[in-house]
Design a binder for these strands. Structure first.
Lengths: 347, 347
DNA sequence: AAACGTTATTTGATCGTTCAACTTAGTGAT
DNA sequence: ATCACTAAGTTGAACGATCAAATAACGTTT
């Protein structure tokens, strides 16, 4: 049996192809009676509309693009796994497919946009890792290409909540603030922060949460803020510096940094019964070594990104418009800080 | 300026559309002189052939499908990141794009195949996680759908090297054998193995390497083989059992298991100067806690998968046919076993 | 110069949809 | 009885490429 098409179905039913097309795309235009008859025949024959033909005619592919970032550390890769998975499922539920592409730089990414739009008619893009002066968002806005980003637009002058493009982000500052408060509650009065060099948006945000908590607690931050590039060794060195400055606990901008800090702390201070090093991202590594960490609701973020992107694409003004800008609150995964000397960290 | 098409280009050049099509798809049919003229015009106008139109006519989409497996542990997620990235890049280089889909079960995956083939005209699939009695490969072979798998076909009766479908795999047995030999060389005479329940293909393979090394070394394996489901706590419990049986070192089928085992070992034995617990996959977790681990050349595997898949798709008999079946050898990432008490593990 | 065999290029049909314009029938108001 | 209007369904054209077959150009041979 040859594959069913609109025409073949139409003939066997004694109606026109357009009627069948209408049953699929504009059911209200079709008399309920014939609609049922056609729907039955569709199910019967296993007919599926050809994406290519549709795409050729409508210039929409029902495909969304997402870039695979260069693998940096590997530690954050597991987050990407969860993110991609949730994204794929959400997209699938809305009838979209996800197309991967890789680009080494942002410029390269923009070049890929042009290509993917031209040849593959991608309907929109999901961006990750937004940063100050992001050229990608500028280009996409300029060309009126639909997209949503995981990460708010970082700008010194403009309010992210009035940005022209939809975004979803996790309130990193709230996370580090929560982490710092926990340490304050445990009696720490000299709490350091190990973060990335200023200017990275997400990094600055995480630093600000720490600072806020210290100020609210009436505690000084002098000499307790270290800026380094991400990595385990860098975290270890930074922790030494902080300990020298009197710190008894640290909050870190990433689990990589925290892991390094943890090793330094364990070699200087006896293992405490409450956390003294707190990381960010709640990667499997953190869980494995018993490191407390700020956990991002990454699946929720992915789902919302698709929801808002699908919404702008369908132009569907009704059906509850999803928030165009959404800031999710992370949670703190609290663990025992003494990994390899007990069973506590296995929980 | 409207977007260039074959017709618009043809008109402005005074040739027929087919000639331009030929320049792109069968340059040898075109007189060198006109070919250059057309090529120049193509570059000039930035013309890109429409994927949709092509797909409609040729029924090929230049898209390959890959399934996002359910996120299990998170630890292995970082491997997936590397794998996906390499896959995407290799595919891009060969002119293919990668389409993600998610499926909860293998049955579901097969159902998705049908859909993706019907509506999106996917040209082929990349399979991961092959196992005994895999229905997916059977279905794909039955329907003559091109695909390549990461993971050999596991069967008790048939030789994987005579399988009908291309695959790439990593010789897990060689990895655990190498790991076990290292432990033997260090003087261990009671080396345990923590692996998954028999029947999982890859798991059995890894177990067999351990056994081979023990036999070659003239050492007994009695009571030293534990079968558990993957996970950190399970690894810790298994290690207790092995220590009770006299083991002084263990080889594990995964880093999750090894991580658990490591915690048990550190709480029973003082930290040695050579590895006594060895994991598998060389995940970032292993690197972070100083766990030795068998490292898979995952990027090589990804590249070869695309190469062999692209080859079968193009039917290109010339241009050096890539190996249809390829078994890559892993390497052993050796690290100091005493993570949180020194600087060694930071290297 | 006619006939031939290549090589180079063109033309018509087609892939499976959706859009836009059109027909037909039915309903109610004037 | 006429007209206007809506509802239901039909038809031709178009999207942009490739395939298959037909034609044009051109150098060789006789």
């Amino acid at each position: 049996m040859a594959k069913a098409t609109l025409v073949s179905l139409a003939e066997s039913l004694g109606v026109s192809r357009q009627t069948i097309s209408n049953v699929i795309n504009a059911p209200h235009r079709v008399k309920p009676e014939t609609r049922l008859r056609v729907e039955h025949a569709i199910a019967e024959s296993g007919y599926r509309p050809s994406a290519a033909a549709r795409q050729l005619r409508t210039r929409r592919s029902m495909n969304l693009g997402i870039r695979m970032m260069p693998v940096v550390d590997g530690i954050n890769g597991s987050i990407l796994d969860r993110f991609l998975h949730a994204l794929t499922e959400a997209a699938q539920d809305e009838g979209y497919r996800l197309t991967l592409f890789s680009a080494a730089t942002d410029d390269d990414e923009v070049r890929q946009y042009e290509d993917l739009l031209n040849v593959a008619d991608l309907d929109g893009f999901v961006l990750t890792g937004t940063h100050h002066g992001d050229q990608r968002t500028a280009w996409l806005l300029d060309h009126e290409i639909p997209f949503a980003s995981f990460g708010r637009p970082w700008s010194d002058t403009e309010d992210p909540f009035s940005s022209r493009h939809p975004w979803v982000d996790v309130d990193g500052g709230a996370g580090t603030e929560q982490a710092t408060r926990l340490l304050l509650d445990q009696g720490h009065t000299a709490i350091g922060f190990i973060g990335w060099p200023a200017g990275s948006g997400a990094g600055d945000d995480r630093r600000s949460g720490w600072l806020r908590a210290l100020r609210d607690g009436g505690v000084l931050a002098d000499q307790l803020d270290v800026e380094v590039h991400d990595g385990v060794p860098a975290g270890a060195r930074a922790a030494e510096q902080l300990i020298a400055a009197g710190a008894t606990a640290v909050v870190c901008a990433s689990d990589s940094l925290a892991l390094g800090a943890l090793s330094t702390f364990r070699s200087r201070y006896p293992a405490p019964t409450t956390p003294d090093v707190i990381g960010f991202d709640d990667t499997p590594v953190a869980a494995a070594v018993g490191l407390s960490s700020v956990a991002q609701p990454i699946e929720d973020a992915a789902r919302h990104i698709i929801r808002v992107l699908a919404h702008t694409l369908s132009g569907d003004a009704a059906s509850g418009r999803p928030d165009k800008h959404l800031l999710l609150t992370p949670t703190l995964a609290q663990r025992f800080p003494h990994p390899l000397a007990g069973d506590g960290w296995l929980a």
